[in-house]
């Protein structure tokens, strides 16, 4: 689980081009959207692509992403339960 979280942080920084942010800036419970990391709607869609490409998890609609992508904890949790 800890490995997965560390990997996720790296993937998010790389895929979403968060150049000003390093892995140590993201806590497991940092809000990824809004006040926390400040991701936006296009980032959310790019995270859906990441889930499918890297973990084989397809989300039926972007609404589902809201909860899943709220923090690293919630993402890791969802991936470990649904990974194919």
């Amino acid at each position: 689980m800890e490995n997965l979280k560390a990997t996720l942080k790296e993937q998010i920084i790389e895929r979403l081009n968060l150049e000003d942010i390093s892995v140590s800036d993201i806590n497991d419970d940092t809000a990824l959207f809004g006040e926390g990391l400040g991701l936006d709607s296009i980032d959310a869609l790019e995270l859906i692509v990441l889930m499918e490409n890297d973990y084989g998890i397809e989300l039926a609609n972007p609404e589902e992403g809201k909860e899943i992508f709220s923090t690293i904890n919630s993402m890791a949790d969802y991936i470990s339960k649904n990974k194919k």
Binding site: L16, L45, E46, V49, N53
Partner: peptide, 10 residues
């Protein structure tokens, strides 16, 4: 067969 990237499309 890849997934089209929304952040590139915009």
């Amino acid at each position: 067969g890849g997934i089209p990237s929304p952040s590139l499309f915009v």
